[in-house]
Design a protein around this nucleic acid. Structure first.
Lengths: 277, 277
DNA sequence: AAGTAGTAACTACTACAGTAACTACTCCCT
DNA sequence: AGGGAGTAGTTACTGTAGTAGTTACTACTT
């Protein structure tokens, strides 16, 4: 079973050794068994199995039962194992949170830019920010990237985060996004894709993304920069949504539309809105 | 700061090395800084600091910023760090849960007894079970132990779990528990304390608990055994609650009282109740 | 004799902690 | 102008603990 190998890795990430993970998983499938048998089913050398079981017993992930002459072992119910780790991690997280409140000072105005390289890391970081989003996500994104963040986006939408922006691709998966009107031309032309994502008016990620290591985006927390980036997407939206009307109306009408987009569609707060007036 | 040392341990439990933990924590307190400065504030040898920072950069817990000739580093916001680990652990837990559904078969009727030794491990395991309780916790417990499980008990009560039983001690902290009527005599006599705890009619822990390693309790999942243990506490409750009346009423009345206690006070389901008739 | 059950002692490898020594640059002092 | 002190970064090494993996042994059962 290849499946079991992945779970071994998972358990190692929880702090078990490879032997401990294998022993526990083998025990799940067959119990109660004695050390000798477990060594056979798990592939752990007989000479080591008792140390491994001892260590698991100590962590209360395995229990020993005396049966006349010999001991047999059984695993902790996996649900209880998960509960055990959850409890322990929750307390760790709480400690870290309390501690960081004391020593960590957020920079209010951070004008520095940070470069993140490599598609995997970019996607990872993007997911992290979206996961943490509380109010609004504005993006301008291509179909090649949308799948890699759709889970996090759906979660965000679920908990009431406003999603807005431009979608470059066919079969737009989000009604909240507007497909670019000249998408066919773009799709045939580009190998590299410009991307912008802003989160809660705090973070902005922008840059060029492609398949591999050469992808490179910039992360900024400068509020002006975020505003600018959101503005860029607002404009893009504007043009794409009202392109037809723009040809026949005057400049004033155009401005009204812009305000309308910002307020109604983009869910700007009054305060945010004032900054643009 | 001794506080920081504990957090280093916490971070190590999340999979960081000691140097990584120290570096990250030092960065929290002062950033952005270059490698040289960080090595000084964190106590990490200058010769190692760049490897450590590289590794942290790879995990995206630290970000590098080019500043004309040299690099400076800043930490990932601790809140995002917590979110990152939570996400990763949640997915691990999900994997384990799914996997265990496939391979793990719960024993329906488990008549075997398992011995747990050492006060710390007993308390730990007790907390684990209480944490997982869904319907009813019945216990007979001494004041020496109640504090070590009160957090878990309060959580359980909060989510609607029924708590019932006997309390051996002064200043009974739970209205759901009944203080033993001859507690003063008991308190002066005993060094070792008999304890019973049943959870959801599934688990029962019983045995002698004292201060140290010689404490030893037995864990059973045999349903009959659980019933018996609950019955023991019911009787104890009965005697303590209605002691006065017992002297003047007949046997019939006594039985009625017992039923009443089981049904009304103990929240037995009809099904559970039938087993006793 | 073959299989079962458990112990002891070891080798090998790796990750991490910890140290020493080197280059190179800047700034300040006299 | 030259030297010392502090800053900044790099290379290479030692030591150790934990883990993986192996071999050899005893003892008991059937």
């Amino acid at each position: 079973m290849n499946d079991a190998l992945l779970i071994v890795e998972d358990l190692k990430n929880l702090g078990l050794t490879e032997y401990e993970a294998k022993a526990y998983l083998s025990l799940l499938e067959e119990y109660p068994v004695n050390g000798y048998t477990l060594s056979k089913t798990s592939g752990i050398p007989r000479s080591r199995i008792y140390e491994v079981l001892d260590s698991l017993k100590n962590k209360q992930l395995v229990f020993e039962q005396m049966e006349d002459t010999m001991s047999v072992y059984k695993p902790l119910d996996p649900k209880l194992l998960i509960g055990k780790f959850k409890k322990s991690f929750d307390s760790i997280f709480y400690h870290i949170e309390e501690y960081s409140k004391k020593v960590y000072l957020k920079e209010e105005n951070d004008h520095k830019l940070i470069v993140i390289q490599g598609r995997d890391k970019i996607i990872d970081f993007l997911n992290l920010l979206i996961h943490d989003a509380k109010r609004r996500i504005v993006l301008s994104i291509w179909e090649e990237e949308i799948n890699d963040i759709s889970q996090a986006l759906n979660d965000a939408i679920q908990r009431g985060v406003v999603l807005r922006g431009m979608y470059f691709g066919r079969n737009n998966p989000y009604e909240q996004l507007v497909t670019h009107r000249r998408i066919e031309r773009h799709l045939s032309e580009k190998k590299e894709r410009y991307m912008t994502v802003t989160v809660d008016g705090i973070h902005v990620l922008y840059g060029i993304i492609s398949r591999g290591e050469d992808s490179q985006i910039t992360w900024a927390k400068d509020p002006d920069f975020v505003d600018m980036s959101e503005d860029y997407v607002v404009h893009d939206l504007m043009v794409n949504l009202y392109a037809n009307q723009l040809d026949i109306k005057q400049r004033e009408e155009y401005e009204k539309f812009l305000d309308h987009v910002r307020k109604e569609y983009f869910a700007f707060t009054e305060e945010e809105f004032k900054k643009f007036k």
